[in-house]
Design a protein around this nucleic acid. Sequence first.
DNA 1: CAAGCTAATAGTAATAGTTACTATTAACTC
DNA 2: GAGTTAATAGTAACTATTACTATTAGCTTG
Lengths: 128, 128
Amino acid sequence: MEAIKQRYSKQRETILEVVQSTLVHPNADWIYKETRKRIPNISLGTVYRNLNQLVETGRIIKLKDESMVRYDGNIGHHDHFRCAVCGKWYDVEMIDQAIIKSFAEKHDFQVESFHLELEGTCKSCLNS
Amino acid sequence: MEAIKQRYSKQRETILEVVQSTLVHPNADWIYKETRKRIPNISLGTVYRNLNQLVETGRIIKLKDESMVRYDGNIGHHDHFRCAVCGKWYDVEMIDQAIIKSFAEKHDFQVESFHLELEGTCKSCLNS
DNA sequence: CAAGCTAATAGTAATAGTTACTATTAACTC
DNA sequence: GAGTTAATAGTAACTATTACTATTAGCTTG
Ligand SMILES: [Mn+2]
Ligand SMILES: [Mn+2]
Ligand SMILES: [Zn+2]
Ligand SMILES: [Zn+2]
């Protein structure tokens, strides 16, 4: 089994920079539009293909929203709060490894990752 | 603002029974096929429309999988383990309200629900 | 219990997010 | 510099879900 060689591409690096430059947890279309400001003729297929590769190589994280996928350049472990009113995603820190370890000892699952998702109303939506 | 009157329909009740009768956390297509065994000419649109209504009225729960939505007839609070190998979802009990309450006190979010999702390899996939 | 109102249905068309395909380009190896 | 093939742009195809429409059937009222 040969290791797959991944060549450099300006498109991929730009996409990565775009995802890493924001806290909005963008979807593919947002990333596409933002990347086109820098590479005007980049195609949507290229964006999707590279987002998938970046997830596979662990350089970004994939999040499941209601009807689409979002991406996150923050690859350290953290959880999320999703506002049901405005749809925004916020980073939160809640669960630590210790809780998961104690779980793993009690069950027959081999836990590789975990993610807590909170839902509710964010502050700015509460104040309006 | 009038309350919306929801009429009885054999289709909706059957769909609910189907979702409640299984632990597989089925998607819409699975539910459609299963319901058709009891109501052979039910349409897929009817399944989707009723699943959405059942979620809105709190009689079933909606779960986000990779490329589709899954449904859960178990409406008591619980978390999930998803096997990355076989794709199966398992019920687990991990997070209690106390953890979330302490979080809510420290932040400006109004938390209405939360859900921990674990991912890894299930026992039967480990043994094969 | 028949008439009227309209929620719900079956069947189908449309939408949206994502993936697949293909000819061409360009990053890396030697 | 030539050869190999990963990556690209552009487009077609796919799939889960929603929207549309004529018809059916629960529920209310007299
Ligand atoms: Mn994040
Ligand atoms: Mn469950
Ligand atoms: Zn909000
Ligand atoms: Zn498994």
